[in-house]
């Protein structure tokens, strides 16, 4: 059993309370943080095309492929940062990337090459 590290009050810690050197003594703590907040493209799964080969699972750098009962179930959007590697590597083209803002039902942000500034107001 791995160590449990109580850092719930880390923002109040003085310099004597941190571990020696920048060490995180407990594994897997990134699971507790939303690291998908900067995603600009979102992966969409087409379940009818997926053969559950787990190529996406192997390639995903953020462990954001959700697997249950040996089936590919979708994406953990708290940790997916939209790199698109899964869509690129999928041998069955079962994953495609869509604009994150649109996926959230927001007005499309146009990229500069599309004539936008990237700063359009969202609805």
């Amino acid at each position: 059993m791995a160590k449990q590290w109580d850092f719930s009050r880390i923002r109040e810690w003085g310099w004597r309370e941190h571990p020696v050197g920048p060490v995180i003594p407990e594994p897997g703590t990134a699971d507790r943080y939303e690291t998908g907040g900067w995603r600009s493209l979102r992966p969409i799964l087409s379940p009818e095309k997926c053969v559950h080969c787990f190529t996406c699972f192997i390639y995903c750098p953020d462990s954001a492929i959700v697997v249950s009962a040996e089936k590919m179930k979708g994406f953990n959007l708290r940790h997916c940062k939209g790199c698109g590697i899964c869509a690129r590597e999928c041998p069955k083209d079962a994953i495609h990337m869509v604009n994150e803002a649109e996926a959230r039902g927001l007005e499309k942000c146009l990229l500069p090459e599309e004539g936008g500034t990237g700063r359009e107001q969202t609805s």
């Binding site: 791995a2 880390i10 050197g21 594994p27």
Partner: peptide, 23 residues
Amino acid sequence: AENPPSWGVFDGLGGYYFEFKRA
């Protein structure tokens, strides 16, 4: 392997760099 730590990590956007340097 029982207690795998992370070393040399990013100090977070909250920022603890100053505290580490004081230590």
